[in-house]
Amino acid sequence: MPKSKRNKTVTLSKTKKKGREHKEAIVNAIKETAEKFSSVFVFSFENMRNKKFKEFREQLKSTSRFFLGSNKVMQVALGHSAADEIRPGLHKVSKLLRGDAGMVFTNLPKEEVERLFNQFEEYDYARTGSTATEKVELKEGPLEQFTHEMEPLLRKQGMPVRLNKGVVELVSDFVVCEEGKPLSPEASRILRLLGIQMATFKLHLICRWGPDDFELYMQGPDDSDVETN
């Protein structure tokens, strides 16, 4: 008997891929924004946390506009060379949009932007695959920070634990993670349970462009072709 088409499962989570129209909208938005603001900064980021970044962006909403996404799309908008740049000197900014980077157009004074970016630092729990910043080792004995209900969960993470008169106890020393090595999913969960935060969300300024000047803050091995004046 043929299968009824009425019973066909429909996935509602499918989303439409961002196509040409979306990219063109971003390019046009960047071009319009470049005409409205006095300067633009390129920045890099590490250990991105979307919620924290949104809060930082909201803080500057009245004076600035951020763009974070496809570097290639942003490069097209700014121009790849002096021949197709949208304002004089912006092709230098385009060349520095690489890796985990974004840009912010702003009317704030240069010193204020530098202060805000240099002061921004948020600590959070490290994710699976992140590099451990220190060695964490738990010694044999009672783990009084955990309730007895958590014993099965800890055991599931590979910890050699048991219940001793209602108290969670390590039956031997246990290394959660080693400094400089990637965190396993289990190590990441244990660190969260222990309240140990190893990830630091930071923003680093790379360059600044203004109508009359260009300044490089961080120079990498591939930036030798970027003119600074």
Rank of each mutant, 00 (worst) to 15 (best):
E21A: 14
E21T: 14
H22R: 03
K23Q: 09
K23A: 09
E24Y: 11
E24C: 09
A25I: 01
A25M: 08
A25C: 03
N28C: 05
N28W: 01
A29S: 13
I30Q: 09
K31I: 11
K31Q: 15
K31F: 05
K31P: 07
K31G: 12
E32L: 10
E32I: 02
E32D: 13
E32P: 00
A34L: 01
E35K: 15
E35G: 09
K36L: 10
K36G: 04
F37H: 14
S38V: 00
S39I: 00
S39Q: 14
V40Y: 09
V40D: 08
F41V: 07
F41A: 07
V42A: 15
V42K: 06
V42P: 07
S44T: 13
S44D: 14
F45D: 08
E46M: 02
N47D: 14
M48P: 02
R49L: 11
R49C: 06
N50T: 04
K51F: 08
K52Q: 14
K52A: 15
K52S: 13
K52E: 15
F53L: 11
K54C: 02
K54W: 06
E55N: 13
E55C: 05
F56G: 07
R57Y: 10
Q59P: 01
L60W: 15
L60P: 12
K61E: 12
S62W: 02
S62G: 07
T63N: 12
T63R: 07
S64P: 06
S64H: 02
R65M: 07
F66Q: 06
F66P: 03
G69L: 00
S70E: 01
S70D: 09
N71D: 05
V73I: 15
M74A: 09
M74R: 01
M74F: 07
M74E: 03
V76K: 11
V76S: 13
